[in-house]
Simulated assay, not measured.
Amino acid sequence: MTIKWEEITKDSRIHLEEVLKLYDEAFPIDIREPHHIFDKALESFGQNPPNTFRFLVGLKNGRPVSFTTGHYLAKANCGFIVYLGTDHHERSKGLGSQALRVIEEYLNRDAVLAGNDSIKAFVLETEKLEAAETEAEREACLKRDHFYKMNGYQIYKDIDYVQPPLNGGNEIIPLKLLIKKRQQSEITAAEVQKLIYAMYVQKYLLVNNISIKELNGCLKAMSIPAAIKTDSTIGKC
């Protein structure tokens, strides 16, 4: 399948409306974020190192059939892949793996531009199997787990990871944290905590505008000692 990958930026949003329709179709309403969150990420970070936001769309005959978004987190030298979606008519054709490879390449280039030899790792969040309420949800979760494992992502088991409450909710969301190493050295527990802290600041504080009190409550629930402060920045350490 011939796919042309293009990037949506704050100055070039030609395919944005079509991709957001694809996003709404690909994700259940209870886990979707409002469309303005994408605008906020593009405006806040865009392609300006050291911290960036990448929004990539795969085109088949000029029509969006896949998309992926992610942040480069300079403080942790890691990429946080937020969304990966494919038109349901085009699934099981290798598009998901291709999308992962493309965004990993972009985020690794951002790491090099930030002064590193390469990015340290990629991270993403995904649902826990025990959260599945139906057999269909259970099967979908198992398929996702297999897909990410085949693409090099491993569950990080030393932290009971939680996602901050989204969409005005007040309950934290237990999820699995998956990590894919890019460098040979092991990722220490301290580095993972630093990575989660950077995810929380760049994505959930500065883009989603979740309160510092809620975010610090989530960090405490994961036994991460660092606390987000009112003057938190995302500049490179």
Rank of each mutant, 00 (worst) to 15 (best):
K157F: 03
K120V: 00
G115E: 10
A131E: 14
M150G: 10
E130W: 13
V112D: 05
I187C: 09
A140E: 14
I155D: 13
V162E: 07
I224K: 09
V123A: 15
Q202F: 02
Y204C: 04
R182V: 00
E135P: 04
K120R: 14
A111S: 15
I103Y: 00
L195P: 01
S211I: 03
I224E: 08
E214F: 02
D145S: 08
L95D: 01
Q184I: 06
C141G: 08
C218M: 13
R182G: 00
L142D: 05
G168Y: 10
F147P: 07
A111I: 02
Y197P: 01
L129D: 06
P165G: 09
I155M: 11
L100Y: 01
E104T: 04
R138I: 05
E127A: 08
V207R: 03
Y148H: 13
I187L: 15
T86H: 01
V82E: 04
C218F: 01
I81L: 10
C218T: 13
K120N: 11
E171I: 11
Y156S: 13
I212G: 05
E214P: 00
A111Q: 03
E171P: 02
N108G: 04
M222Q: 09
A114T: 07
I210A: 02
A190I: 13
E127I: 08
V162N: 08
V192C: 08
N208E: 15
K128I: 10
V123M: 12
R138D: 04
A189K: 15
A189S: 12
L107T: 07
I196Q: 05
K213M: 06
Q193T: 03
M199A: 04
G168P: 06
Y148T: 09
I224C: 05
F147L: 14
F122W: 06
E105K: 14
T126Y: 05
K149N: 14
S185K: 15
Y83V: 01
I172K: 10
Y83S: 07
Y204P: 03
L100R: 00
A99S: 15
A190G: 03
E104L: 06
E127F: 10
M150Y: 06
K213R: 11
E127V: 10
N167R: 12
M222R: 09
I196D: 02
A198N: 09
D145Q: 13
Y197A: 02
K203D: 11
P165M: 10
T134N: 10
T134Y: 03
Q163H: 11
N208K: 10
E171V: 12
Y161Q: 09
